[in-house]
């Protein structure tokens, strides 16, 4: 119970951020011709911002089912890496259902939560956040389809940094503890900016390419000792 409650507390800012993002996602969905119910179902079952907006584009273009399959893989490829990373963070003795559920609800935010814990990740800490944030995501999408641009733009703008604030709260303490992580974080910022500035690569592609390249570079030059493992 205590663990669920602690998770729920983290779930509130996640849910509010989700609501704002889902709301704007709803506007994309309505342009693609989805009903509020269809948007609600999609967000309830998919839980992916980039993935869903890419999918809605496919629906609006009435492209082939194969194209839907491929674009879903590309837009969500970072979850393959995250799922691998998270597999090492879960107690090998944990029951299958917990691995299944943590996988099913693997989003950037829930992933960040799970990784930020010391030792093995506690599934119930994640469930606490999911209980609040997942309905926010689905309802936000449905409301976005219904209400369009009704929410004041200032509120939308302020809420749009909520998710990133969370990311910072994961990255920075780790950078402080581990100098090699700090160097990789700075490098990631520089590379990410250069790619954004000088190429037309999408954000999801940039994330995939840089994650593979810089993490491999880190593993090659910053070898960690056994006792560094948490």
């Amino acid at each position: 119970m205590e663990r669920l409650k602690n998770g729920l507390k983290v779930g509130i800012p996640i849910g509010l951020g989700y609501f704002a993002v889902a709301f704007s996602l709803g506007i994309v969905a309505s342009k693609a011709g989805l009903t509020p119910f269809q948007g609600f179902i999609t967000s309830l079952l998919v839980n992916a911002s980039a993935g869903e907006s890419a999918g809605f584009t496919v629906i609006s273009e009435q492209a082939s089912y194969l194209q839907m399959f491929l674009i879903t893989i590309v837009a969500n490829a970072r979850y393959i890496l995250m799922s691998f990373a998270l597999s090492q963070k879960i107690n090998p003795k944990e029951r299958f259902i917990h691995r299944f559920l943590l996988g099913y609800f693997l989003t950037d935010e829930y992933f960040a939560m799970a990784i930020s814990q010391t030792g093995f990740a506690d599934p119930f800490y994640s469930y606490g956040a999911i209980m609040f944030a997942a309905p926010c995501w689905a309802l936000g999408t449905a409301l976005g389809i219904i209400m369009g641009n009704a929410l004041p733009f200032r509120i939308v703008s302020a809420l749009s940094v909520a998710l990133y604030g969370m990311f910072l709260a994961i990255i920075m303490p780790a950078s402080r503890k581990d100098r090699n992580v700090a160097i990789l974080v700075v490098l990631s910022c520089i590379c990410s900016y250069l790619i954004y500035r000088f190429t037309s690569l999408s954000t999801s592609m940039t994330t995939i390419v840089l994650t593979v390249a810089l993490s491999a570079l880190g593993a090659l030059i910053f070898k960690r000792k056994e006792e560094d493992d948490e």
């Binding site: 890496l81 990311f167 994961i170 990410s192 840089l210 993490s215």
Partner: peptide, 28 residues
């Protein structure tokens, strides 16, 4: 060892790349 170190660094690189410059561009 390589795969372990690689997976250790993945979340930090991923989250950083998704945060910057996207966070700066997300606001009005």
């Amino acid at each position: 060892r390589f795969i372990r170190d690689f997976l250790y660094y993945v979340p930090y690189v991923t989250l950083t790349v998704m945060t910057f410059p996207s966070m700066v561009l997300a606001t009005d």
